[in-house]
Write a protein that binds this DNA or RNA. Structure first.
Length: 939
DNA sequence: CTTGGGACTTAGCACTGTGACC
DNA sequence: GGTCACAGTGCTAAGTCCCAAG
């Protein structure tokens, strides 16, 4: 807890602000992360009010309780937190009034919205039916919706027509779906808020770190950038800017940093101009061009069609696909050698004595094929349903009711979950009921119409009991079970790929059950149907032992497509997505890809300074789309935001960078003594809240104001940008560059820098590990990797604290005794006394060490409360950085990677030396060995 | 050029086995 | 031997990105 001081550090990033654009801002990875609580919603006119309300919501509610009880336990952090809370409380009281009112409104709105949405759904269906005809009409209205932005701008002054359109728009899309869902999310996410609170502490801490980091960071070295980048840039500054609404502030800014007041009107003025201009041309919001998305039903229909042709071997489809792909030399050589592989004594021997296939030492083939020989046993199908014992009854409306097999199975799915939060959600329940009824016999269907009248308790109890029994199994039973499982893994868990035995990642077909979407998923509670062999496509070599379908069944298809890595796939019925059986992370196929990913990130390092220069220049481009692109890229780089693809409406409402909407950011010219503060508050992947207060560059800030201008909540912030556009641009800047690479790059770079910063050579290993975890944590924070605080956190923390206290007492006692003995020994004590003293001294040292260890683990634990380190470690951190660090500081690799992780990163453990530098020269993975000849191997 | 969907990575939560502790 | 906590693992949802079809 040495970092308490950090907590008073004002929100980060003041540095970045002042230096405007031309001089390379300190950059990226550092000043970010400030999460807190909250959620949103808005009503057009009430936007402001809503904002308050939202804030309130975030701040108040639940968690506060938890927070206070749990986290205030100890430390200064808590004090700090307390201050914050108090602060919030104050704000809150003012706003509560607003909230109450608007909540009521919300309810009203919600209802309305719902029905609107339904209407829309129906429309969607119709659309499918008469696609073409209907399109023109209905879609138009929809398009209108999407055109919103442009229209708003164009006709902003003109009136009635616009209002009508607005209404339509509002009905559409975000209205019900996201508003209401947000609200619900709000409720559900108490836990998150709790987390958020905690996170704040870390954040504060990290912020400080980040600052250090920033300092450490090397100044970008400018290298002339080829490409259009520069070209476009030059002229912007002067006359052209005058024409452009947008640009003037930029100009102004360069002249006079001080006069903020002026700018607002200027902006407005300009805006008018801008509208005219945009009206004209290319600089149109994307939404305008976007066509209506075809709802999922269509997909599903397609799926159905496909389903009709079951067969044993279906090369045709594949062939078609392959022909398309033919650029890739489709030389599938099924040499007998491959097939003979398992038999070949030499190879077999090799496999046995050396189970690790050091593929990274082989030369990579660049034929684009994923394998040349592939053999496996097919996926393991889910167990058949066993009916409940006859004494386990289901009750409907107080009476027992016998259910048919399918209906009973589904009842079981639900019964198992009745203790879960999910079953308190109306969406979940209604989805379940409607899917459930589809499985019922007409008779059942007729009778069973109300979920509330269903009594699942006996069934639930039955499954609970079953779990109990499972836990209480005898040793023998356990052992037998374990053996069966191992047998299954031995049978299904491995494949032979190009002569090597490799572990399969998920060889089990997903069993049926209820769909548990994350966040406010509109499809939660729907029934995932049982997958039959007839649904499964097998992929393997033609000349391999083709997996046998279970007796009485056949596969949907067997194909031999060696341009892909999957062994089997099927289509899931909830969202119509394909699910794959693939190799496990330690396999060559995955490992190679992983390695490649980090090499791409390292290549980015070589050009990142130029890219940063460029997007900073682009902040003042005269083209709106360029500015938006630049600002988005700035966020992606600086805050490690995800790209943010568009999503369908039948998914939870979450966003990433490109899909941010205006309500997701709040702009403050001044906040907490800092200028140009942007508050991000949105739900990202997995409906995990992203909350961050960041001080940004003035130009970014001004641009954001501009982007938000004349838009309503629900409108896209970047209306001229999407991920394709962004990635296309990125790819032009560097081969293979996409938005995601920035995340990898900044994460890995942060780790390396933090390790350099935090590692203290003289510390014992245990302290170093803590330092490593802190560096790791900095990354997790950057990437916003959260987890729910463990349920038992408080308790176990208290236990630990008690241990510490006890230990401390022991230490003190030992110290006292030691002193006494010392005295005795000194003042002409006997030999015996001297020995006793020595002994005590040693014991004392041991105790101290133990105490230290305990304290360290307490710190670590506290800091990790709501941060998940695993995700970044597994997906974003170049393992060679960690390996090198371990080697450099003599930390056993086991302290950093567990067994699974070690096998996943075997390639890195094998190849990285102590002086590996992520920011060093990238390797050419396909040419392999030669490139890292310098690096020696260590076991 | 847009859209849909295929393929693959990234993600958090749930479950489980194990080992520390009593 | 029983209990508990937690690390490790499994599971599968939810992203990204790319390419082909329309």
């Amino acid at each position: 807890m040495s970092e308490m001081e950090d907590f008073n550090v004002p929100v980060d990033g003041g540095e970045a602000i002042s230096n405007g654009m031309t001089n390379g801002i300190s950059n990226g990875t550092s000043e970010h992360r400030e999460h807190k609580e909250h959620k949103h919603r808005h009503k057009d006119k009430e936007r402001d009010k809503d904002r308050h309300r939202d804030k309130d919501r975030h701040k108040s509610s639940h968690k506060d309780k938890d927070r206070h009880s749990s986290s205030h336990k100890s430390s200064h952090k808590d004090k700090e937190q307390g201050d914050k809370d108090r602060h919030k409380d104050k704000e809150r009281s003012d706003k509560d009034k607003h909230r109450e009112r608007s909540d009521r409104d919300k309810h009203r709105d919600k209802d309305k919205e719902r029905s609107d949405k339904d209407k829309h759904r129906d429309k969607d269906k119709d659309r499918h039916r008469d696609k073409d005809k209907e399109r023109s009409d209905k879609d138009k209205s929809r398009d209108k919706d999407k055109d919103r932005h442009r229209d708003d701008k164009r006709h902003s002054s003109s009136s009635g027509e616009k209002k009508d359109r607005d209404k339509d728009r509002d009905k559409d899309r975000r209205s019900s779906s996201h508003k209401s869902s947000h609200r619900d999310k709000d409720k559900d996410r108490h836990r998150d808020r709790d987390k958020d609170k905690e996170r704040n502490r870390d954040k504060d801490r990290e912020r400080e770190k980040a600052k250090l980091e920033t300092k450490v960071e090397p100044e970008p070295v400018f290298q002339p950038m080829e490409e259009e980048m520069i070209v476009k840039e030059e002229p912007v500054e002067s006359e052209e800017e005058d024409k452009l609404v947008i640009s003037e502030p930029v100009k102004e800014e360069t002249l006079e940093e001080e006069e903020e007041e002026e700018e607002v009107p200027v902006f407005n003025r300009m805006h008018v101009k801008q509208e005219e201009e945009e009206d004209e041309e290319d600089d149109k919001p994307l939404a305008v061009r976007r066509k209506v998305k075809e709802p999922k039903e269509k997909k599903r229909k397609k799926m159905k069609d496909e389903d009709d042709d079951y067969g044993d071997f279906k090369p045709e489809k594949k062939r078609i696909k392959k022909e398309k792909k033919e650029k890739k030399p489709k030389v599938v050589k099924f040499t007998s050698a491959h097939k003979a592989e398992p038999i070949s004594p030499s190879k077999k021997a090799k496999k046995e004595e050396d189970p690790v296939w050091k593929w990274w030492e082989e030369t990579k083939r660049d034929d684009g094929l994923k394998w040349h020989f592939l053999e496996h046993k097919g996926p393991m199908m889910a167990e058949n349903y066993k009916r409940l014992p006859s004494n386990v009854k289901f009750y409907y409306n107080g009476e027992t009711m016998e259910l048919s097999d399918l209906a009973e199975e589904a009842a079981g799915f639900y019964a198992r979950m009745i203790e879960h939060d999910y079953t308190t959600k109306p969406v979940f329940n209604s989805n379940f009921l409607s899917d459930w009824r589809k499985l019922m016999t007409p008779k059942e269907k007729e009778k069973l119409t109300d979920l509330k009248k269903c009594d699942f308790r006996r069934i639930h109890a039955f499954y609970v009991q079953q779990n109990e029994d499972r836990k209480n199994r005898s040793k023998e039973e356990r052992k037998a079970l374990k053996e069966t499982n191992e047998g299954l893994i031995a049978e299904y868990g491995w494949c032979n790929i190009d002569g090597h035995k490799q572990r399969i990642g998920n060889f089990k077909i997903e069993p049926p059950g209820l769909f548990r979407g994350r966040g406010e998923h509109p499809k939660q509670g729907m029934i995932k149907k049982r997958i039959m062999p007839e649904d499964v496509i097998i992929n393997c070599s033609k000349d391999s032992a083709i997996p046998k379908p279970p007796p009485g069944h056949r596969w949907k298809e067997v194909r031999a497509d060696n341009t892909v890595t999957w062994l089997a796939c099927w289509t899931e019925n909830i969202q119509g997505q394909t699910k794959y059986v693939m190799l496990n992370a330690a396999s060559k196929l995955k490992g190679e890809k992983d390695w490649q990913k980090y090499e791409t990130a390292r290549r980015l390092h070589k050009v990142v300074d130029r890219i940063r220069e460029q997007y900073k220049l682009d902040f003042k481009s005269k083209e709106m789309r360029i500015r938006q692109r630049a600002v988005a890229l700035y966020f992606i780089d600086k805050l490690a935001l995800r790209a943010g693809n568009e999503k369908d409406e039948d998914q939870a409402d979450t966003v990433g960078c490109c899909s941010l909407r205006v309500e997701h950011l709040q702009l403050y010219e001044q906040k907490n003594g800092k200028e140009y503060v942007v508050i991000f508050d949105f739900l990202g992947k997995d409906s995990i809240r992203y909350y961050n207060e960041v001080a940004v560059e003035k130009r970014v800030f001004k641009n954001l104001q501009l982007f938000k201008e004349n838009k309503e909540p629900g409108n896209d912030l970047f209306d001229r940008l999407n991920t394709q556009i962004l990635n296309k641009h990125l790819n032009e800047l560097m081969d293979g560059l996409t938005a995601k690479v920035f995340r990898t790059y900044n994460a890995s770079r942060t780790l390396q820098e933090q390790l350099e910063l935090l590692t203290n050579t003289d510390d014992p290993i245990i302290a170093k590990v803590l330092q490593y975890n802190r560096a790791n944590r900095a990354v997790a924070l950057l990437c916003n990797h959260q987890r729910a605080a463990p349920k038992t956190f408080d308790k176990s923390m208290a236990t630990l604290q008690k241990k510490i206290d006890d230990k401390r007492d022991l230490v003190e006692e030992a110290e006292r005794e030691c002193k006494q003995l010392k005295k005795a020994a000194k003042s002409g004590g006997s030999q015996k006394e001297k020995i006793a003293h020595e002994k005590k001294k040693k014991a004392l040292d041991r105790l101290r060490e133990q105490l230290e260890k305990l304290e360290l683990s307490a710190t670590d634990k506290e800091e990790n409360k709501t941060i998940a380190l695993g995700t970044s470690k597994l997906n974003y951190l170049d393992p060679r950085i960690s390996v090198a660090w371990c080697k450099r500081y003599d930390v056993p690799i086991e302290k950093v990677y567990n067994k699974t992780q070690r096998s996943k990163f075997q390639w890195a453990i094998d190849m990285a030396t102590a002086d590996y530098n992520f920011m060093g020269e990238p390797m050419n993975i396909s040419r392999n060995n030669d490139d890292y000849g310098e690096e020696e191997e260590e076991e």
